[in-house]
């Protein structure tokens, strides 16, 4: 269970970004999560809620976009989405491939922030 340390890294990254943009409140954090990232979505969502307590991200949503594994099939000369991460073969022609194009993502994509405007 390393999702808690991953959640803390997300919170640090998002907080830094929000502060550098002059944001006061973060409404949501958008994340891309690959099927081969080694991170369990539910555990991450749970950890995020716990770890944001008492931080500037408290109450914010973690929005996760699942990224399926896409391999490059040299037989078809095309990118193909795996049917299962237990079977690294082209779903069309059946050729084996270890050439992962997408699916390892653990990426902080964007944050939704609300800026505080100075009242003059």
């Amino acid at each position: 269970m390393h999702e808690l340390s991953i959640a803390i890294s997300i919170i640090e990254g998002a907080s830094q970004e929000a502060l550098s943009r002059g944001g006061a409140q973060v409404h949501a954090v958008h994340l891309k999560l690959g099927a081969l990232s080694g991170v369990v979505k539910d555990a991450l969502l749970f950890s995020y809620e716990v770890a944001t307590n008492g931080t500037m991200l408290e109450g914010s949503r973690l929005v996760i976009e699942d990224v399926p594994v896409v391999i490059y099939c040299s037989e078809c000369q095309a990118e193909r989405r795996l049917k299962s991460i237990q079977q690294f073969c082209c779903p069309v022609c059946g050729a084996l491939s270890s050439d992962v194009v997408r699916g390892r993502e653990l990426e902080l994509v964007a944050i939704e922030i609300e800026e505080v405007e100075e009242i003059v």
Partner: peptide, 13 residues
């Protein structure tokens, strides 16, 4: 305060 806006970050966690 203003409406929330989406800020692109794009960095590996």
């Amino acid at each position: 305060s203003s409406q929330p806006r989406l800020v692109e970050v794009r960095q590996n966690v």
